[in-house]
Amino acid sequence: MNVSTSEKKWFALYTKPRWEKKVHEGLLKRGVDSWCPVQRIEKQWTDRKKIIEEPLFRSYVFVNIDFEPQRLKVLQTDGVLNFVHYLGKPAIIKDEEIDTIKRYLSEIDAKVELRTLQGFRTDTKVKITQGVFMDKEGTVLREGRKKVYVQLQSLGQVMVVEFSVAHLEQIG
């Protein structure tokens, strides 16, 4: 394993299903810098509506660690299944990607939907002209919709983010 131990890096962890918040709390108790991004969702029950915080990435939690000294401590935390691997090595998540997600989630009315890369066709390429995703490029999900794809390459997933059409500019 050739992961540098000279500085902390962000890694993604697989967790047991629906254990994201428990794993995050367990890691924090063990002194591990952990982040479980959540978004506020309105859920409808038969008798009431309730706003809940739901993990943004199902079965994922992020840790900011020096890999070798803290790897075992992380893996021994209840609910952690393994590090997410990319090309045979633990996937290092760029600070920029973590910061972008944090900034977006701090916006009022931020809505994010996640999809895997399989099954997506490339449509119109767009550039975002306002907000935290300004100058980022994406692909429109469907014509006439207000959603663009922003790929997080190190996770092999796509964020589908709602934008006003006024904040998009066609490119290419």
Rank of each mutant, 00 (worst) to 15 (best):
F57G: 01
K43E: 08
E113D: 14
I101P: 00
R58K: 10
T5K: 11
F57D: 00
A110M: 08
V165A: 06
V80R: 01
P17T: 14
Q153L: 06
T15L: 02
V150T: 14
V126G: 03
L105R: 00
L81G: 09
D95G: 02
N2K: 14
V3K: 13
G144C: 08
K49N: 07
R71S: 08
P37M: 07
T124K: 10
F67C: 08
V32F: 05
S164G: 02
K94N: 08
Q70S: 05
T124L: 14
Q76M: 10
E53I: 01
E54C: 07
V80D: 00
L13N: 13
L168R: 04
I92Q: 04
Q170K: 15
V32E: 01
L87P: 05
E107I: 03
V148C: 12
F120K: 11
K127H: 04
E107Q: 10
F133R: 03
E68K: 15
D66M: 15
M134A: 09
F163C: 00
G131K: 03
K136N: 11
F163N: 01
K111M: 10
V63N: 01
P90C: 03
L81P: 10
V148L: 05
D33G: 09
L81Y: 00
C36D: 05
E169R: 08
D135C: 06
Q70H: 13
L87R: 11
L72P: 03
C36F: 05
D99S: 10
K49S: 01
K22E: 12
K50L: 08
F11Y: 15
V74H: 00
V80F: 07
L105K: 02
E137V: 14
K89S: 13
H167I: 05
L81K: 08
I128E: 04
M1H: 09
V150R: 05
K111T: 03
E68M: 15
S154H: 06
D135F: 05
R48N: 00
Q153E: 11
V74K: 00
K147T: 15
K89G: 07
W19I: 02
K73I: 11
V80Y: 06
L72I: 14
G172H: 04
G31I: 14
L27D: 00
K94Y: 02
G88P: 07
V38Y: 00
Y149K: 05
E42S: 06
D66R: 15
